[in-house]
Amino acid sequence: MIDFLAHLGRSGLHWLSLLGRASIFLFRVLRSQDAVVRRYRLTLIEIYSVGVRSLLIIVVSGLFVGMVLGYQGYITLVNFGAAEALGGVVALSLVRELGPVVTALLFAGRAGSALTAEIGLMKTTEQLSAMEMMAVDPYRRVFAPRFFAGFLSMPLLAAIFSAVGVMGGFIVGVGLLGVDSGSYFSQMQAVTDWREDVVSGVIKSIVFGFVVTWIAIFQGLDAEPTSEGISRATTQTVVASALAVLGLDFILTGLMFT
């Protein structure tokens, strides 16, 4: 019993100190954000490696998710004689949920894990230390541009994902299953609200971008400086990001769609 309490206390303290370190880290990164503009070239490189290079996986996944939605939505709706409502079903699911959430999960796997590994490696090989000794602040030189790149890329990627998904649903619904193309889009416009659905989805993806990038960079910095430590941190990034995204999604959905 005492052992259990001690264990509980120890893990509680562990989590608390982790949260503390992560918050201090976030604070310092945010304070260094002026470097994003001053060193815009570094920021460009990071947007390229975080955003542009995630584009392919996002477009392909978006297309397939949209096509599956079109197919499954049609099968369900046709039972009610409401196949015309397909556009609304596809668009709402994408814009509200699947766009931001799936993009965030893919982003965590593709860009987040790479960020963690990169920074973990820089720490392990003393590159961060060397920068400090050369009087270069790693927060401004390394973390701030990466953080901004993730924060900026996520909503853009999510929007691309949703847009491509809508087209995927169109290809299957209209092209293959014969839903009228006019009603596909008119139904879509009838049920999808700009502020309530599209803007809320964008807000979600902004929050996800913030959290996933934060987790990824912090995990890299907090990794134990060994190769095992890096691989553990990389896994941690994906797991923690996925949990954070899904948990936050629930909270945000509750707050925004009442």
Partner: peptide, 19 residues
Amino acid sequence: FVLLGIAALFYLAIQVSNI
């Protein structure tokens, strides 16, 4: 990339939603 993202947002706004 940024243009593409913004274009997607526009698409969502004008073609998909009731803006």
